[in-house]
Design a protein around this nucleic acid. Structure first.
Lengths: 256, 256
DNA sequence: CGTTCAGTTGACCATGATCAAGAGTGGTGG
DNA sequence: CCACCACTCTTGATCATGGTCAACTGAACG
């Protein structure tokens, strides 16, 4: 109980209250078998059927698909507490790849172990599906981002999203957080070129919306950045978003 | 047994073999309580928490999010056999809206009924999650579509996707199918303007890739259209895609 | 100390957006 | 039955966002 909870536990508690037993269960699960992956290495490649399910305990990864011409679209980032491939509990083959951005620390969950959980711990099972559905909601928001927003909006949106996701698992310090993405990564996630990402980030910097120095992002004014990115954080389904809303914001479910 | 299976059954059988009992169960489920929705009507709006889960038995719908400035991004289309909001089995509020494109015929599944299924029919439960995960894979593909493909590619991709999805539930006739989307709908789905969609569709028509007349799409040469849209249908996780591949196509999980 | 990779800058170009107007079609009510 | 309205599709002219190509800087690392 006096122990610092691991990333998975922190993540699940964002959605569902867990009992002490649940937490112990998760701790055991995450300690059982861990693995380290070096930056830029593929964790799982499209078409593979890994024997176990990974949970990120530390570091950043990205989910992506490649096209024949070599272009890469990142479809999501994964941070501590994220599950890599719950898919495989049901689907048989990966339909996309996952690659390490930073050095990664992973927990490996065998299928039997997970099956055990699913049949015994309702709380944890519910929370796991919750994580899965939230990640689907994030996919939808990325579709909106790519389809409707301008370059500065897309990038501001990405900064907000990652900050809020890190905050929900306790990985922010005040208004700054680690931010290991290269401008190339940002380009592949936002459907822009790295040249344009570069110019756009400079613009956001000039407007005083963000500061980035040595893999660290600082957001001087969160509400302003949210406006710049037209972000409505509801899609993240976090419990405590009150910090980043104000009375002036029109509620998402107001009119129409 | 001599009965024509309903859309949900056809859909689930695309993924998992079902027993006669499973099928009966599904038939009862879908007959229990149905509802009709008129075109352009919202079925469920963002922020709502509908008491039951809808399954589309007939017609087309779309999932979308609105931005404050009134722009709409369609994030997915739903056709017969698709579940509208399995989300709500776990999440409490809708994070997006669903609207009827054509007149819709829906089956309404109460939470208790679904809960019953989940605890008693493993086959059906697995297939339902399968549907959910495939729809997530489709989201990923839409991200790729919006992020990496040109206007003609995006639209060709959409035509292919919808045709293949309809085909898998037996709703195509040869190489044509119903196609009730307006150019405006296509614009909102592909992140383009309707003006540009119009010109692009004319181009696809001129290239002989598609024919559209009175809500009906015909694809003279499926492989050619797939190439034009840079489509790799693996992401749909259909069982029988062999019809639309040829020896010349490089397998998706070949090199690297 | 050279190599590699991320970031930066400039010049030019192309895809797709915007604005505006008109044609075709179907539905509705007087 | 016809007039009107609404909606979808179509076309043209102009513009802007973001892409392409290419070169250069600076830091990190062996």
């Amino acid at each position: 109980m006096g122990q610092l909870p691991n990333a998975l536990t922190r993540r699940l508690e964002e959605y569902t209250p867990l009992t002490a037993t649940d937490r112990d269960e998760l701790q055991i699960l995450c300690d059982q078998s861990t693995r380290t992956i070096q930056p830029k290495r593929d964790l799982i490649a499209e078409g593979e059927a890994p024997p176990c399910i990974y949970v990120i305990l530390d570091g950043w990864a990205c989910h992506y698909r490649m096209l024949e011409d070599g272009s890469r679209q990142i479809v999501d980032f994964a941070i501590p507490g994220d599950l890599c491939d719950l898919n495989l509990f049901i689907l048989n083959r990966m339909d996309h790849s996952i690659s390490a951005i930073t050095r990664l620390k992973l927990a490996q969950l065998g299928r039997e172990m997970l099956h055990n959980i699913v049949t015994h711990c309702l709380n944890i099972t519910t929370a796991l599906w919750w994580v899965e559905l939230v990640s689907k909601s994030i996919h939808r928001e990325w579709i909106v981002n790519l389809g409707q927003r301008s370059a500065p909006e897309r990038i501001a949106h990405l900064f907000c999203e990652m900050f809020l996701r890190l905050e929900s698992i306790g990985l922010t310090q005040g208004f700054s957080c680690d931010f290991p993405l290269t401008q190339n990564d940002i380009a592949d996630a936002t459907g822009l070129t790295s040249v344009h990402v570069n110019r756009t980030i400079q613009e956001l910097r000039k407007r005083g919306l963000i500061r980035i120095e040595r893999q660290r992002l600082t957001i001087p004014n969160m509400l302003e950045l949210q406006e710049a990115g037209r972000v409505n954080p509801d899609y993240l389904h976090h419990r405590r978003l009150s910090r980043h809303t104000d009375a002036g914001r029109v509620s998402s479910r107001g009119a129409k």
